[in-house]
Structures are given as C-alpha cells and as structure tokens.
Design a protein around this nucleic acid. Structure first.
Lengths: 337, 337
DNA sequence: TTGAAAGCGCTAACAT
DNA sequence: ATGTTAGCGCTTTCAA
C-alpha cells in the first residue's frame, strides 16, 4: 500500500520533493506548466499522499473521535449519522469508541487521546461516570471536546443538549392528564445530568399536581437485562406499583412491556408507559409507544460542526456554551385511554 | 497535545533516543536499571507515544476501517459491537465509514484506503454496488479486506455470512405452513448476493409447494420512505396482493405494518409478515414480529478476529474462505394464527 | 520558479 | 549496554 511517494514523483520528473509538494498544494511558487506535469503524473501513477506523514508534520490528523456509551441505541446511531454527514463534508475521519456505560473504559479511551491521534472529541459520557478528572485533563491539554446529550457540566466547553427538564415535565404532565397518580421514573443513572434534569422535570409535574408523595425514582442497570426484568417485576408487584412509567432510555421498554404482559397488566389501561426514544418502530409497538424523541441527527451535526470549526480556526475557541435543541413528545396509545 | 517526546526523555536522562525507545519496548538490550529509570520518568512526565510517528516508521497504523451501509440498522450496530470487542482486545482503532447504500460513496471511501490510513478493512457492501473494480483494486494492492453479510463474491478473501438461502427457505416454508399461498419477497437490492440467496431460498419453498406462480419479488428503495409506503400500498391493493411477506431488511417493517393498518388488513389473519431483523423490540410489536435473526455480534467478532490475525501475522493469508454462522428463526405472532 | 536541508517523533541497523 | 545514524513521507523555511 501507498508505494507511490512524492520522492518517486520527484525522481520521475527530475524535480525536488519540495517542488512536488508545492505543486500538489497548488502553491503560487510553482509555475503552471510544472503543476500540470506533476498533477498529470500523480494521477497516472495513482499517487495518494500518506496521511500519517503529513499528520506528523502538521500535528493535525483530520480525525475526530466519537465516544459513546452504546451504538445500538437509536439515539446514538442517529447522532452518528449526523456527525458523519459533517465529517464527510469537511474531509474528516471518524474514530468510533464505545464505553458500554463503563467509566473505566471511558478513562482508558480518553487517556489515549493525549497521543495526538485525534484533533478533537465528540462525546456523551457513560451513565457511571462521576469523576471527570481524566476528561478535564485531556481537555486542559488543548484537546477540543464537544459534549452532546450526556454532557459534563464541569468542563468549560460547548455542549449540545435537548430540553431535558422540560421534556421530563411535559411527559409527566401528559401522564397525569391521562389520569396517572403514581409516577415512576425508570432511570439509567444516578449521576447523569440529563437524567437528573428529566427527573426534576417529572417531579415538578408531580408537585404541581400534589402527587409527589408517590413519585418513585428507580435506577436500572443498563447492562443487566434479566436483573432489570426482576427489578421491574418487583416494582410492579409492590405496594408502590405505579400507574405511569417514564423510561429514561429506550432499552428499558421491552422489559417493561414484557413484564406488564406477564403480570396481566394492560398498557395503557392499568399502567401508562412512555419512553425517551428515537426508534422508528415505536409507532408499531403493542401498544404504540408514546415517546420523547430527541433531534439526534441534528445534535450530531451541531456537535461535529462546532468541533470541526474549532479545529480549523484556532481563533474560534470553544466557549462554555450550551446549545439546546428541542425534543418532541409523540403521544401514542401507550399513554392514552 | 503530545508534547512529551522520546527526545525530551532522552535529554532529561542523559540517554540517547534509541535507548529510550528500546527501554520503552522492554528490549533485552537495555539494562533493568535504565529501563526502570525510563519508565519512571515516562510515567512522571506522562509520556504518550505519537501514534503517527510510529505508524510512519512501521507502515502500520493499528487501525481498521469499518465500511457499512447504515449504522441505524440493528444488525449493523450489533456487528459494530462485535468488531469493537475484538479491536479493543487487540489494541486496534476503528474508523467508521457509512456508505448510506450509495455505490458512489463507497468508491470514494475505498479509494482513500490506498493511502495506508488503515491496515485492513471490514465491509458490507451497499445495495447499489454492482461494480467491484474499486474494491478489487485496493484489495489487490495488498490491503486485507474481510467481508461480512453483504459480501463481494468476486474478491478472493475471507467472508463471514449467514445461511441466507436456508433462512429464506425456512422463513417461507414457515409462512406456507401457516397457510400462505401468495408470497412476496420485499427486497432491498437487485444485486446483493445475500438478497439473491434469500430470495432463491424463498422461491424453493414456493416451488416445493407449487405456489411459485404467485411469488413476487418487489424491490424497495432503502432510502425513500414515503415512496416505499406507496409501493407497498400499491402491492397490497393490487391483484397480486400477497398473503405472506418476507422483509429482507427491518427498515421495511414499520411501513408494512402501517400500510396494513391503513388498509384494514389484519396481521396475521389477512397477511403474514416476517422480517430479517435484530431489533429487540420485535417481541413487543403489534403483533410481535417473526424474525430471522442473524448472529450479528458474532459475525462482527469473527470478521475482526480474522482481519486482525491477517494483519498481525503476514504468514496468515486471507483465503477465499467463507465462514457461515447460522441465523435463527423466531416465530412470533405476525405469522401464526 | 526551483532546490537543499532540516525536522515532525519514532525505530532499527549498525556501531561502540 | 548504549549511542550514532539514517530514514519512514511530507512540509517548510531559506537559499539559489
């Protein structure tokens, strides 16, 4: 691979490597005629520049890292589409790293970025992450980071989020309007800001309707499926059995549906269920699932746009700035009578 | 970023850069005591090797490319998980490229790989791809490629697939056993081998039951949602209206369900539907969806394992070898009376 | 307009 | 056991 080098072109044309390099970059120092000759030969020999050689010189890799908890979540995979659409446009390459919701993995990944492998990072932190030293450390070493969705408040950089508090509020208010009096918030984390905000929003709706006494916050483990089922079953057979559930993450929905079926609980009659989700099967679930759908693609796009801008123009500095794109509540059968 | 270099360590310790390099690689040429000193300082100064410098020397990037049509498809996102699990283990990095089912994009992406940016490629070709010159070209330049699922027969390399013919056959036989007499195969491509094989399998089942006359092959455009809906509606209101549908790709399912609902067709009573899919919401659809589920994670794992082996040991040459992992038919309500 | 030379950071052959 | 040197492929002064 990559055998045709500038050196070869130079020898072939009786020019210096410097001249070739300049010609290839359309430098004004080089005459039109030589440029033509160089371009022609480059094309003929199928010259392709070695990206690592020029990375080494430039200290720029034209590569960004995308660090995510879970690529099978529809929100994240759509966000990747958004990121990729910009990367392609700006001629950037995308390294994908998955944390699988583990803080430990995240740390290892982030440390590696101090190597200069990437010019910037787009990330959504894991549900476990509580210590931000490592993130802060690589960020403070001049590595641009843009957070999206699961942001890290403590880092003074750009953040792309949705209106989580409001979404939690509207979702819960909707449940209450549909007659729910005992709301449970199925959470994926005790630490994530988005989860906290969604929960706070939910709680506000409960408070406004004086049903905060029965509000429950139940944390499930995103990566222990059977265990989750048990926990849901416990919940739904306990004294505190809710009549309305807000799932913080789409992954919980199948278990909730299945346990309800097993227990003979009808959705939405006995219990109403709603989830944050971007799944396009939501509409054909049984019953169709009311969702809060985030603008995943747009968020990815925004994150990539800002990140790449900050990489390309050093005058553009990532401010501690939060861009909020609104989510949409799609009301479907799982919450309506 | 990446400011601490071997040179700095060398100066600091009064050693040559060569000695540092060897010490860091635990060479037997270096005394234990200096190794200790070097390691200690490296740790203290937080030395992190520049990957591009060593890539340049070694002509090895420890990076693989994953080229996919669509990251939001549950099959592909699970496959990424499998690939990533091996990449992490073997200390490889993963560059993600999406073709969005466009041959043109695929070609551009593949050409770039001649630059030496990656040591190998894992790919699943687009539904449009009919010309393999470009793939062949980069493959013949000594770039290892492993195909999975949507393979390219013409290239003499390793391929990880599932038993597509058999799956198509079993799926269709199942439909016929459930009483279907007019089967339609909703296809995503006219060229993909997997699609052809699935269809052939389906046809075989029809032939065995003498209902091949009514067998239909309808191709939908993966990226034109409304258009697909129309086409499905046409199909379901035509003379040739099937009583059994095999979806080649999960993306078609929502439209099929929705159109059926719109037309007042009951699944499974009036029409039975089945799809190739890895969605874990299949079980809670209305009705729950019968699926052929491919071992996506394992396929990704297998592809990455083989690719990386061929990168690491030059003695291991990718043979034109096909590894077939079996899919599973999960029978659910969408096909049973 | 072109070339010579140095160097990005790391490594490997060949001294010492 | 350690150092010297050259070079991976490309870019960028600076000199011609």
């Amino acid at each position: 691979m990559a055998n045709v080098t500038i050196k070869i072109l130079a020898k072939e044309l009786g020019l210096s490597t410097a001249a070739i390099s300049k010609a290839l970059h359309d430098s004004h120092e080089i005459s039109e005629s030589t440029k033509q000759r160089v371009l022609a030969l480059a094309k003929e020999l199928n010259y392709i520049p070695n990206p690592y050689a020029s990375s080494l010189r430039h200290r720029k890799s034209n590569t960004i890292a995308v660090v995510l908890p879970d690529v099978t979540d529809s929100f994240f995979s759509e966000a990747i589409n958004g990121i990729e659409s910009i990367a392609i446009e700006k001629d950037f390459h995308v390294l994908l790293y998955l944390t699988h919701e583990r803080a430990q993995r995240e740390e290892t990944i982030l440390k590696e970025f101090k190597s200069g492998r990437v010019d910037g990072i787009i990330m959504s932190i894991s549900s476990e992450t509580t210590n931000f030293d490592c993130i802060h450390d690589t960020f403070s070493k001049n590595m641009p980071i843009v957070f999206f969705d699961r942001i890290c408040e403590q880092i003074d950089t750009a953040k792309i989020i949705t209106n989580d508090f409001e979404s939690g509020y509207l979702a819960t208010r909707h449940l209450i309007e549909q007659g729910c009096k005992k709301i449970t918030f199925l959470s994926n984390s005790d630490s994530l800001l988005i989860t906290k905000n969604r929960k706070e929003g939910a709680l506000k709706a409960c408070l406004e309707n004086a049903i905060e006494e029965s509000f429950l916050h139940v944390k499930l483990d995103c990566y222990a499926n059977e265990f989750d089922s048990e926990k849901i079953e416990q919940l739904l057979t306990s004294e505190q059995k809710p009549d309305g559930i807000v799932c913080c993450i789409e992954k919980f929905t199948p278990n909730v549906y299945i346990v309800c079926r097993k227990l003979g609980l009808s959705i939405p009659k006995d219990i109403k269920v709603l989830s944050f989700s971007n799944l396009n099967t939501a509409i054909i679930l049984n019953p169709s699932l009311t969702t809060i759908t985030q603008p995943a693609f747009e968020m990815g796009k925004a994150a990539a746009t800002i990140l790449i801008k900050s990489i390309e123009k050093k005058s553009f500095i990532l401010k501690d700035e939060t861009i909020t794109l609104p989510s949409t509540l799609f009301i479907r059968d799982s919450t309506t009578n």
